[in-house]
């Protein structure tokens, strides 16, 4: 009995050690080293620098509440847009908490955008990661008048910025057309500088 066990345990041990080192150490390290050599910017998280200072990652959303900025989608992380602890709301479709939150967001959006029509679904519903950096072009245009008014900038100029920053579906087919809120707001700071609002 003991010798049967050993005859199984011994090869298991002998194979586990080199395979664990190969798959758990050599493989991830070589991928990381290769990607650091070939694609360092992407591999380090597509960092966003403003005047040489790192201000986040281009792919990771941030909260904006200044009227002169485009606002991101609702975020369900404990602190909104916390990239140290990603999370969705995990609220079920029938949960009254979700219904209350959606109604409150709806009322707040309506109040902040008196000239716009109905708000888009994505501004009422929180993303899965709590870090969604994107808006649909429609959700950006929904905020256009508010942003233009706060910056004393023409709505046409803001529209043009949205169009310029719209990424199409992959191959025109996969996913959704989208605008990166971080990059749109950075471009806004250059195209429509407004002394009263941030965005350096």
């Amino acid at each position: 009995m003991l010798s049967t066990l050993w005859s199984t345990l011994r090869p298991a041990l002998l194979l586990t050690i080199p395979l664990t080192a190969l798959c758990g150490l050599i493989y991830p390290l070589s991928i990381t080293v290769l990607s650091q050599l070939l694609l360092p910017d992407l591999a380090n998280g597509s960092l966003l620098r403003v005047d040489g200072e790192v201000r986040g990652a281009a792919l990771v959303g941030q909260p904006f509440d200044d009227p002169g900025h485009f606002w991101s989608r609702p975020s369900a992380t404990a602190t909104p847009y916390d990239p140290a602890a990603s999370s969705g709301s995990n609220l079920g479709p029938s949960n009254p908490t979700l219904h209350t939150a959606v109604a409150a967001r709806h009322a707040a959006l309506r109040a902040a955008h008196p000239t716009a029509s109905a708000p888009p679904a994505e501004l009422l519903l929180a993303s899965g990661s709590g870090l969604d950096p994107h808006l649909s072009p429609a959700a950006a245009r929904y905020q256009r008048d508010r942003v233009a008014a706060a910056r004393a900038c023409s709505p046409t100029a803001v529209d043009a910025l949205i169009t310029a920053h719209t990424a199409p579906r992959a191959l025109g087919i996969f996913g959704e057309a989208r605008v990166n809120v971080l990059q749109l707001n950075l471009a806004l700071a250059t195209a429509c500088p407004a002394p009263a609002v941030g965005g350096r």
């Binding site: 609220l91 959606v102 109905a118 959700a139």
Partner: peptide, 26 residues
Amino acid sequence: PALAALGPDAVAIDAPMGNLEGKELR
């Protein structure tokens, strides 16, 4: 249901539609 409860015409129809709670826009 949470959007339907807002009443008719409460949500834009020219934007991505459906149950986007917990989903990424991209």
